[in-house]
Design a protein around this nucleic acid. Structure first.
Length: 809
DNA sequence: GTCAATGACATTTTT
DNA sequence: TGTCATTGAC
């Protein structure tokens, strides 16, 4: 694909910090705009659409930013320009990013552009911004500002308990199911009471769920806790219930910018709507004329990169932005500054197979670059070995390890990769996965801290009640809970008064001792303590020493417990580092920060290691060399996605996101057999592989070319490798299998099947769902809908005119 | 109340 | 493969 010649070439090194950018100091004497003709450092080096996106002033702006089109640059320059031109104070800016890391980077870049006067801006994730608001306002609606944030594991633990209590498992409810359903409802702003009102009580299953949901909500409230989804939805409820509170924020934020808008869910969308509404004071005084008074809104996104539908992201938020905000300006960024043309062409070819999308073509001025490399291993280990070998080669060629990344669909795929990487001495780092904070011993230590900060949190307290072992078993725990309930007192108070329960002297002492320890720690951590609160590290030290937690671990015979003790020490180091980075940071601040860290936030650019992560985590990142592993059916697209509406299309976007992370080199690898739960099963090449034009890929071992001789014995292959030369002396580049036959057979444009006649009983083939039979046809003319039962994908409704279907038989 | 042994079962993606 | 829940012996 050649770039249109009339486009203006700009500096391709978008992501590098421009050397020519000079910090601009706000000069009160200067006019609102820089002098005519003088080069404006905020516009310099931007292409025309980028410039338009920075300069547009109006109520609503949608920036459709293709992958690698420099959207972060546009956003930062836009913010800087608003501040520099004195159109906004920094404190009037609210910018929402997807991760904390992206927020930190944006803040850094804006303040660099402005010469360090960016104090007071809110640049954060949705969740962080909401926590900030909720902590300030907590007291006005029945919470304290020390509320706990429950992560998904905490939510699941609570749900598990409730399922047991209500015996909901007899109705077939499982923890993940209930958790997902509650999460979904919260993202749609349906709270427990609303659900209860419309629940179908003649259906016992639904009645039980409704009760589960209500008890879950009640338990959170009683524990003075919010789960992840609450952070957003409760902020919306807060704004709706207390307009005067909402007005404070509406008055404050005059410019709201939202990144990754395609991945916002309904609750987040509603939050933005609430915030961009004009404050009431304006309405009363008649200041509000159409579009006046509400904050200006800028959203950036790319519907082709929407990959979070499973967590409630609604692609319609971006698709229907212009309808939502009439008069909105739309700017398209299509020039890519990141990848080579070969990589982009592959990406374009793949994504063009998604129907019902706006056609959009990324192009670059960089040139073709190296071809994409494909490899089919005999097993997952074989595949991993290839990746490790190529990484070593790339490193020899001068690409730094931290400029390389390995992506996979599921976290479980890391195992084989890690094994081989360790053996091959490839320095690597896994982002996400089993995170540090998910380890049991860390959760224990955190539960101590949480119990100190939030005495109402029964879940945290239950976790530490008998950790380390103090002889407080389930029976005692139930007694304690009943006592607290009867006397209408907190758990902590109940523990202090444990002697009244008439338990054994040993148990009673254990309980009272723990209560004393928590009280002492709470006093130390108290923000209002005379002389200032103790540091988090001091509080943690007190807790783990006096409770005997580490001592017990060290004394254990289990060799793993030694490592656990070290992890707790590591957490102590984290608290010390926190104190250095956040002077005056309280215990609650620390707990908040820990709750909201995302996988990518751990990415350290200077680490000198290869990064391994899921395709989801990879969004928003870029690397010189990218390996996408496990490009197989049932993995990409994942087996579980087949039944979901829009599943295969979302999986394709995920693959697209992966491809577009690569700057120079892209490797697509798969295996013929893959181990899972100890069993090995046969894997098939992903359908998406066939969507990449054959001439873009050099197959070291193509899916068709690899014979089955290797079977499942990667060791034999290892042994057969002398030095660094590849094992197959035969033709290195086998002809790509059925490529020409398949590539771009389905054109990417919005299809038009014209007046394809379908009647019940017809058999059709759908590019995503396979073959199926038409049950009935409804609607008229261009809106005729076919109801189809697919063999593997089940029942679907399809708009006949544009669906990627054809009649068979 | 604790511990060790056994067997069932699971792996999609995440703030 | 590895985690977990249940079981039964102390």
């Amino acid at each position: 694909m050649t770039p249109p010649s009339d486009r203006i070439r700009t500096d391709a090194a978008d992501s590098a910090t421009g050397p020519s950018i000079v910090p601009v100091i706000v000069d009160p004497a200067a006019g609102p705009r820089a002098a005519e003709g003088a080069p404006d450092p905020l516009l310099d080096g931007l292409n025309p659409p980028q410039r338009a996106a920075v300069e547009y002033r109006g109520d609503a702006l949608l920036i459709v930013a293709g992958a690698g089109s420099g959207k972060t640059r546009v956003l930062t320059h836009r913010i800087a320009s608003l501040i520099r031109n004195r159109e906004a104070w920094p404190s009037q800016i609210l910018a929402i990013t997807f991760t904390n890391k992206a927020a930190a980077e944006m803040r850094e870049r804006v303040s660099h552009l402005l010469g360090g006067i960016a104090e007071g801006m809110w640049i954060s994730t949705f969740h962080s911004a909401c926590v900030r608001i909720l902590r300030r306002e907590a007291e006005s609606f029945g919470f304290t500002r020390a509320f706990t944030i429950y992560d998904s594991a905490d939510s699941r633990a609570l749900i598990k308990r409730l399922i047991k209590d209500l015996q909901a498992d007899t109705y077939g409810y499982t923890v993940p199911q209930v958790a997902a359903r509650i999460s979904k409802l919260k993202n749609e702003l349906t709270d427990a009471e609303t659900y209860a009102r419309q629940a179908n009580y003649s259906d016992p299953q639904d009645a039980v769920f409704s009760q589960l949901y209500q008890e879950y909500a009640h338990a959170l409230q009683a524990a003075n806790a919010f789960d992840f989804d609450d952070l957003i939805s409760q902020t919306v409820y807060l704004f709706r219930a207390f307009p005067e509170v909402a007005d404070r924020y509406r008055t404050r934020f005059r410019h709201i910018l939202v990144d990754e808008y395609q991945d916002t869910n309904h609750a987040q969308y509603s939050l933005i709507r609430e915030l961009t509404r004009p404050p009431r004071s304006n309405e009363l005084e008649g200041v509000s004329s159409p579009g006046n008074g509400g904050a200006s809104l800028t959203v950036v996104g790319d519907s082709d990169q929407s990959i979070y539908a499973f967590r409630g992201a609604d692609i319609r938020n971006i698709v229907e932005f212009e309808r939502d905000f009439p008069g909105a300006e739309v700017v398209l960024l299509e020039q890519n500054y990141r990848s080579t043309q070969n990589i982009l062409s592959a990406a374009n070819a793949v994504i063009s197979n998604n129907f019902d999308r706006k056609d959009k073509n990324l192009w670059t001025a960089v040139g073709d670059g190296a071809k994409i490399v494909g490899y089919t291993g005999y097993s997952g280990h074989d595949e991993a070995q290839f990746v490790a070998d190529e990484i070593a080669k790339l490193h020899d060629e001068g690409i730094a390890y931290n400029e390389m990344a390995v992506f996979y669909r599921t976290n479980s795929q890391t195992r084989a990769l890690e094994e081989i990487f360790i053996r091959s001495a490839v320095p690597y780092r896994v982002l996400g996965g089993t995170k540090f904070y998910e380890r049991a011993e860390i959760k224990d230590a955190m539960a101590y801290l949480t119990s100190v900060a939030n005495p109402f949190d029964a879940l945290a307290l239950r976790r530490i009640l008998n950790t380390p072992k103090r002889g407080i078993g389930p029976a005692t725990e139930t007694q304690l809970a009943g006592f607290a309930e009867r006397e209408q007192i907190s758990y902590r108070e109940a523990m202090r008064r444990a002697p009244e329960l008439g338990l054994g002297p040993k148990v009673t002492k254990a309980i009272v001792d723990l209560a004393t320890l928590l009280d002492e720690a709470a006093e130390l951590a108290d923000p209002d303590r005379p002389g200032g609160p103790g540091r988090v590290s001091e509080v943690l030290t007190l807790l783990i020493e006096r409770s005997g937690y580490v001592t017990t671990l060290r004394a254990s015979r289990d060799p793993q417990d030694e490592a656990r003790a070290e992890n707790v020490e590591e957490l102590l180091a984290v608290t010390k580092e926190f104190a250095v980075n956040n002077p005056g940071g309280t215990l609650v601040d620390f707990l908040t920060e820990v709750s909201l860290v995302a996988a990518v936030d751990e990415l350290d650019d200077a680490s000198g290691t290869v990064s391994m992560m899921t395709l989801h985590t990879a969004k928003g990142l870029e690397f010189d060399a990218v390996f996408i592993t496990g490009v197989e059916e049932d993995l990409i697209p994942h087996r579980m996605s087949a039944n979901e509406p829009g599943g295969p299309a979302e999986e394709r976007r995920l693959f697209y996101v992966g491809i577009t992370r690569a700057r120079k080199r892209l490797f697509l690898t798969l295996a013929m057999t893959r181990a899972q739960f100890g069993e090995t099963s046969v894997a098939m090449p992903s359908r998406y592989l066939q969507e990449i034009p054959g001439d873009l890929v050099d197959w070291v071992q193509s899916p068709g070319g690899a014979t089955s001789r290797g079977g499942t014995q990667p060791r034999a292959l290892n042994a057969a490798r002398p030095g660094s030369s590849r094992w197959n002396d035969g033709p290195v580049y086998l002809p790509p299998k059925p490529k020409t036959e398949w590539a771009n057979r389905v054109t990417g444009q919005v299809r038009d099947n014209g007046d394809l006649e379908l009647v019940p009983g017809d058999r059709i083939r759908h590019t995503d769902f396979g073959e199926g039979r038409v049950d009935q046809v409804t609607g008229e003319g261009a809106k005729r809908v076919a109801h189809v039962t697919f063999e593997s994908a089940g029942r679907k409704k399809l708009l006949i005119k544009i669906a990627p279907i054809e009649k068979v038989g």
